[in-house]
Write a protein that binds this DNA or RNA. Sequence first.
DNA 1: TTGTATTATTGCAATATTACGATTAATTTT
DNA 2: AAAATTAATCGTAATATTGCAATAATACAA
Lengths: 109, 109
Amino acid sequence: MGATKTDLFTQQQNEMAAMAKALAHPARIAILQYLVKKNACVCGDLVEELGLAQATTSQHLKELKTAGIIQGSIEGVSVCYCINPKVWKQYKELFNAFFKDVDLQNTCC
Amino acid sequence: MGATKTDLFTQQQNEMAAMAKALAHPARIAILQYLVKKNACVCGDLVEELGLAQATTSQHLKELKTAGIIQGSIEGVSVCYCINPKVWKQYKELFNAFFKDVDLQNTCC
DNA sequence: TTGTATTATTGCAATATTACGATTAATTTT
DNA sequence: AAAATTAATCGTAATATTGCAATAATACAA
C-alpha cells in the first residue's frame, strides 16, 4: 500500500490526475506564469525568481518537462525553457471539458 | 526540508496549486465525474464504484470536502455528497483564467 | 588545455500522500 | 434495548514528494 492504484481507473482519469499533479505545486505554477509573462525562454533567472535552490528549481522544471507542458533547448551554456503551446492547449481543453457540464441549479444537500 | 515553502509564493499561486492538488488523484477525478453524472447525492456507492476500501474512499471525500469542491450532509444512516456549485464555478473560472492568455505562435525553443 | 558558467543528477533527510484494517460514532431497524 | 448499517477516524505501513548540498556533465572562453 502507499502507491496510487492506477489500474482501478480509466486512462482518461489517470491522465487528468497527472495533468493536475503537474500543476499541484506553487513553484510550478510560478514557473508557468513566469514563462507565460516573459514568453521569451529564460531559465537561470528562475532560480532567483523563485527563491528555491538550483537543484530544486531544476527538479520542478524536469517535472513540467516530463508532463510535456514546457520544453527546453540548449542555448550555448544555458538552457532555454518555454511553454509547449500544443500541450498547453491540450491542458486548457481538457480542464475546460472537465468543468463544463454541471447544472449549477441542481444541488441536493 | 520536505515541506512546500508556501511563503515563497503568492497567495494566488498557493491557491491555484491547492486546487490542482485536489484534482491530482484519479480517485478524486472519478468521484467528481460520478457526482456530476449522477447529480443526485450518492455516497456508499462510491466505495463499490471506485474499488477502493471504505476508509480510503472516505479519505478522498474528505480531501475534496476540505478543498470545498464537494459538500456532504447526513441523510439518515448514510451521507449524501454532491458538487458545491459555487466552488465548482470558481475552479472553472480560475483554471480558465490560468490557461487563457498564451500566444500559441510565439515559441522560442 | 584549463578555467568558468550553467544546468542536471545523485544522495539524503524531512514531510506528505495513499491505502487499508480496526475501531468508533451515529442512526435505523428489528 | 439489541443488532445492523453506514461513514468517519485512528494507527500504521508503503510509497511519493519536496528541498538542498555536493557532485557530475556540458558548453564556452581564455
